[in-house]
């Protein structure tokens, strides 16, 4: 009885997969990416952005990131800036949500002022870089609809090519093409198409490392803007998972203390 059930399951599985629409399959892959990255609780890391314009002129951004996983909702994040010097100590607190606008507060240390800011501006550049806020904010499944395109090989890695469409009408993109590593369920490349559906940017994830035997994080995220010739290399360092962060580390007082 038991055996026949297992047999039936084994026999039926491919049929079920085949019967899924491209949309269902895309969503299933996105959910698997999300579920494999669930349960890390919290991490601290330092981030460096190297901005380059088409003439090769460089500019540096240094910041520190603290992230807390929130069950049933988007993550809480606190980013503190160290470089450039004039914004040293400036800090951004974000409570991202699966649905609707995120909550964001900006701390300006010279005035000691905490400002709640409009978070609808997702498409704007983050600190003058090629990353928009929506590119680096918490990637929740609910923020997109999906469509599976094909199984393909990218850079010698067997991948799923999934297209995703932002739910938020204020997104700067019509669609994104994402290559997901079949074995590890992690993004390895994303092509961003602007509001006119023209290829705008490409993000490549490099140097993935595994933390706590489960969570994959790329050491480098390289974003290239095809329309302006500008690029930003985002380097992540000193990852510290389950560092003991709690809800109390993500309020207006901790925002002012952050520096």
């Amino acid at each position: 009885m038991k055996l026949s059930l297992i047999l039936a399951t084994l026999l039926l599985t491919p049929a079920v997969t085949l019967a899924m629409t491209a949309e269902e399959r895309g969503l299933e892959i996105a959910k698997e990416v999300d579920s494999r990255d669930t349960g890390f609780h919290d991490f601290k890391a330092s981030m460096t952005m190297l901005l380059k314009n088409r003439h090769g002129e460089e500019s540096l951004r240094d910041m520190r990131n603290q992230t807390l996983e929130v069950e049933g909702d988007g993550d809480k994040t606190l980013v503190v800036f160290d470089e450039p010097r004039d914004v040293k100590g400036t800090a951004l607190l974000s409570f991202s949500h699966k649905v609707g606008d995120d909550d964001q507060w900006l701390y300006l240390p010279a005035l000691k002022r905490v400002k709640r800011i409009a978070s609808r501006n997702k498409s704007g550049p983050f600190m003058g870089s090629e990353f928009a806020y929506e590119d680096i904010s918490s990637q929740e499944v609910e923020k997109y609809t999906y469509k599976f395109i094909e199984e393909s090989e990218h850079d010698g890695i067997a991948s799923y090519l999934v297209e995703r469409y932002p739910v938020d009408p204020n997104s700067g993109y019509t669609r994104q093409q994402m290559w997901v590593d079949k074995a590890r369920y992690i993004p390895i490349k994303i092509d961003y198409y602007d509001r006119k559906n023209v290829l705008l940017k490409t993000l490549v994830f490099r140097g993935y490392q595994q933390y706590l035997d489960q969570y994959w994080r790329a050491d480098e995220m390289f974003m290239e803007n095809h329309q302006t010739g500008k690029s930003t290399l985002l380097t992540w360092k000193q990852y510290d998972f389950r560092s003991g962060l709690t809800d109390a580390d993500f309020n207006k007082n901790s925002l002012k203390r952050a520096r």
Partner: peptide, 9 residues
């Protein structure tokens, strides 16, 4: 008091 409603504060 501040109400943050989309693009309006």
């Amino acid at each position: 008091l501040q109400a943050t409603k989309g693009d309006w504060l």
